[in-house]
Amino acid sequence: MQSPNQRKMTTLTIFSFVVLVSLYGCGGGSGESDKSAVTPEAIDKPVEVTQLAINDLVAAPDFNFTSKSNIIVKLNVEQYQGRRSYINVYRHYQMMSDGSYYPDGASRVVSGPLVDGHFTQTFTGFNKQQQYLVEIWTYDNLPPQQQEITVTNDQLVWY
């Protein structure tokens, strides 16, 4: 059964093309880290703003004032069957000079063990973000397997 909240969150399938372009534009698809989130300067002077009074602003009767949707992360990785392993999904990360990704640990949205190479979980995604970093760690001090995955049909699928 879907809760009322979940029903309200299945909104906004017309996703902003502008956002996609800007993500590619910053090279690597990482969202802002918490640190960079404080960096952008606010506007110093009033821009040319139509000073709409709040009483004149009209919202749609069912708009919930956020843009979120449920995203399913799915892994089915044969090579990890029978091996103790663990997956993490991050919103924010950046690409290093060697091509690997450096995740921002604060932005981890899902974590858990792979069971016989399988993992499936749902989490709440923000529509302005279309790419996530997924990584698999084993317990043998080897570097993780990493994939930057784009949300497709509300899913992150490891190939």
Binding site: I14, V18, A42, D44, L57, V58, A59
Partner: peptide, 24 residues
Amino acid sequence: FQQFVESQGTQSNNWFELNQAVSQ
């Protein structure tokens, strides 16, 4: 925030970021 509301969230969904604000 106006555009975000009027577009039902399809536009300006970063309306709350600091670089979208009027700092004073």
